[in-house]
Simulated scan of single mutants.
Amino acid sequence: MTATHPLDAAEVASAGKAPRTERGRRTLRAILDAAAEEFGEKGFHEGSISGITRRAGVALGSFYTYFDSKDAVFRALVRDMSEQVKEHVGPAIRAAQGQIEAERAGLLHFIKFARAHKEIYRIIDEAEFVDPESFRMHYATTAERIHTRLRAAAARGEIRGDISEVHAWAIMGMNVFLGLRYSVWADEEDAEDIADTIASMLARGIAAD
């Protein structure tokens, strides 16, 4: 997994261990990508630092240059993956015409991201027990981004005026489980059709006409 817009190195590395050179940033990126593969395949408890460095093609000492422990790289990875999702779906949301189309675009690109990075589900789910703070932050910040754009759309008169945090969490929860069903469990369904179905539901609800 390669991030095109990774978190700033100072935000990812352990305290006082941020890389100072481009080579160092590339090494840190390789370690994070390798950690995603290691934890995605084996889980946190079975995954190992030696497994991460072997996948990254770096020496064991290079790991400790940037991270204090396996827990530290896992925490960094959860934040990094959350950022990758934001960076992947954000441009499509911003380019959409109208809020329903924006939510459709967000779901569509999230499904595509999850199909390419299925390990995100295992890693985020394990974070609930390995690092509850990162787990909670991942979902809280995602819901807040949705809530912010919904409030802006309501102010523009594009959607109902009584929009609330509940609506944001409902949309996020729907997207998370659609990604699980149609990206991780099976990915043969057309992602455009899934996004169309949800956009129609958001626009018209499910009550009989």
Rank of each mutant, 00 (worst) to 15 (best):
A30H: 06
A9P: 03
Q84V: 04
A30W: 02
V78F: 10
G16Q: 10
T21I: 09
R79N: 13
F67T: 07
S48R: 13
E128G: 13
S62W: 10
H109S: 12
G40D: 03
L32H: 10
A116R: 10
A72N: 06
E128L: 13
R54A: 14
E126G: 06
D33H: 12
D33W: 05
V78P: 06
T27W: 01
R25V: 13
A95I: 05
R79Y: 10
R79C: 08
E11P: 04
R25T: 11
E103W: 07
D71W: 07
L28I: 08
L32T: 04
F39W: 09
A114W: 00
P19R: 00
A72P: 07
G16V: 02
I93P: 04
K118H: 03
A35C: 08
I111W: 09
T27P: 00
I111G: 11
A9M: 05
G51V: 01
Y121N: 04
V130R: 10
K17A: 02
D68A: 07
E46C: 03
E11N: 08
E87D: 07
D68I: 07
G61Q: 14
G61V: 03
Q84Y: 10
A59S: 14
A105T: 01
I120V: 15
G40W: 02
P132C: 12
G40M: 09
I52G: 07
T27C: 01
E41H: 12
L108N: 03
Y64K: 05
P132H: 10
Y64N: 06
G106D: 12
K42A: 14
R23Q: 13
E126C: 04
E119K: 07
R122P: 09
D80G: 10
S48A: 08
Q99C: 13
R55Y: 09
H109G: 09
R25M: 08
F110D: 04
A59F: 08
G98E: 03
G40E: 04
G90I: 11
D131I: 05
E22L: 12
